[in-house]
Design a protein around this nucleic acid. Structure first.
Length: 205
DNA sequence: CGACCGATTGACT
DNA sequence: GTCAATCGGTCGG
């Protein structure tokens, strides 16, 4: 077998990708591929929507009040996965950015399913049908369910071989839309949400 | 400890 | 548009 982990022309994003400023990373995440390797195959999705959370300057961020048992992964070095449980039933996943101790992260809000869509449908509890549908992964908790991302994935290093991001198809700046984040009630809200213009897999237009 | 509540989703008026 | 589901994290007493 020995099938390559990242078949050309896609390669795993390097540590340096995640160590840049959070807003830069957020915008640059659009178009990249989220990959999860499982026992039965790969799950792949193209990132089309993200939100940045900026620690001490951001009342809406879990890291606003410093490190706690729940958010400690946010303070890891950039390139780790922060997964949290919310509303008693949902998981959401973030990419940690910046140097160790900063507490910044980018929430993955939506991806376009590219590979492993049958497994995603099964994980989502949806009936089989033909083409990939936005319902599979057009929300932060939906994509976690589709990719089976939960407590055991919290803290994973994205430079490992379980879950990682690849170069994918970087989104041209002209196709990036910036808006206020969704569902934020604390503090004065910022335009720290980024999504691919006109993409039908985005959670909300 | 008890109380409040959330970076959501899906069902429904 | 409204609203309940459901429970761990966080904070106040």
């Amino acid at each position: 077998m020995n099938r390559p982990v990242t078949p050309p022309p896609f390669s795993k994003l390097p540590r340096a990708f995640y160590l840049r400023s959070t807003l830069t990373v957020a915008a640059d995440l659009l178009g990249r591929y989220l990959v999860k390797r499982t026992l039965t195959g790969r799950l792949v999705g193209r990132i089309v929507e993200v939100e940045a959370y900026l620690s001490a300057m951001d009342p809406a961020s879990h890291s606003y009040n410093g490190k706690t048992p729940r958010n400690e992964v946010m303070f890891d070095r950039g390139g780790h996965l922060y997964v949290y449980f919310t509303y008693g039933m949902h998981f959401c996943s973030n990419v940690v950015t910046g140097e160790e101790g900063t507490g910044h992260a980018v929430l993955l809000r939506a991806v376009e399913p590219l590979e492993g869509t049958d497994a995603m449908r099964k994980s989502r509890g949806l009936k089989s049908s033909g083409k990939p549908e936005p319902l599979l992964t057009n929300g932060p908790a939906k994509l976690c369910q589709a990719f089976s991302i939960g407590r055991s994935e919290n803290g994973l290093d994205l430079l490992g071989n379980t879950i990682y991001l690849t170069t994918g198809e970087p989104c041209p700046r002209s196709s990036i839309v910036r808006s206020r984040r969704i569902g934020i009630r604390k503090g004065v809200e910022h335009r720290w949400r980024f999504f691919v213009k006109g993409n039908r897999f985005v959670s909300r237009p």
